[in-house]
Nucleic acid binder design. Structure first.
Lengths: 140, 140
DNA sequence: ATACAACAATTGTAATTGTAACTGTTCGTT
DNA sequence: AACGAACAGTTACAATTACAATTGTTGTAT
């Protein structure tokens, strides 16, 4: 019998689900969902990346990315520019409105991080970050 | 400027996304998606729980749960029983086919856990589990 | 230079998930 | 007992996401 209650992967799943609920709740007032927020945040941090990079970051299909970006473009949060040296790809940028939204999103993520770290000591935080880094390197 | 690349919450998000991609890939042959698999796994581990409990575990609305369960019921993987002492709720159980599917799902999750832990020492594993436990308690 | 495979993104459609309003049941208070 | 609030789940519909096939572009090997 192989149950898996205390497993690392199960813990990660549980925490990510709870994080998602928290973030979604905070995003209600912005009229965005988690994926849209993470998209804006990604472009905020990595402007000029192409859709394929975003797809990998979010773990979604390229087709799904097209849909997400269409919506954000409709809200005038992002713009897509085809570089002259490669016409099959599109570089992603935030508009001014997108910047503003991204900054609000940043504070939501920052608040979340505060919630997680406030109850922990500095060394605990470093330990956990180190452990997570190892895990994510394994899966990369 | 508040970037958040190395944050705990961001790491958790990245890892959960990668886990999800792995699990989805493995599930293709079973014709199930991640949510359906986690649902079957949950009922496998906690038979008799009601839909609301599942909703909390998955971080989804009750209405979404209804949809997911309808589909799994259509595949004859689960059954729902209304207890005589409380007619507004439904206890969830696996059928025989559901048990078989759940066992295959268990091996997928088990394999994933192996991938994560094989590159780590016993003490590292215990450290990471302890850290994750703290985090999930904070968010609970 | 040309042919062909690989790449980045999109389209149309199907499947899934989310929202708000609603049904019926149980619980608590009077 | 009888009222209303809270609860568990569902419905109808809207929004989002996934899948398979397709377009147009770039890279590579002849």
């Amino acid at each position: 019998m192989l149950k898996n209650t205390g497993n690392i992967s199960e813990q990660i799943y549980l925490i990510s689900t709870m994080q998602k609920s928290y973030v979604q709740e905070q995003l209600r007032k912005l009229g965005l969902n988690e994926i849209q927020a993470r998209t804006l945040n990604y472009i905020y941090i990595y402007p000029g990346k192409i859709q394929k990079d975003l797809a990998k970051y979010l773990g979604k299909q390229n087709a799904t990315i097209t849909n997400i970006l269409k919506l954000l473009e409709g809200k005038h949060y992002i713009k897509r520019e085809i570089p002259s040296d490669n016409e099959r790809q599109k570089n992603l940028y935030l508009t001014e409105d997108g910047e503003k939204a991204a900054e609000m999103i940043q504070t939501i993520f920052h608040d979340l991080e505060d919630i997680l770290t406030n109850a922990l000591s500095t060394s605990e935080i470093e330990n956990i970050k180190g452990g997570l880094k190892k895990i994510s390197d394994i899966l990369k």
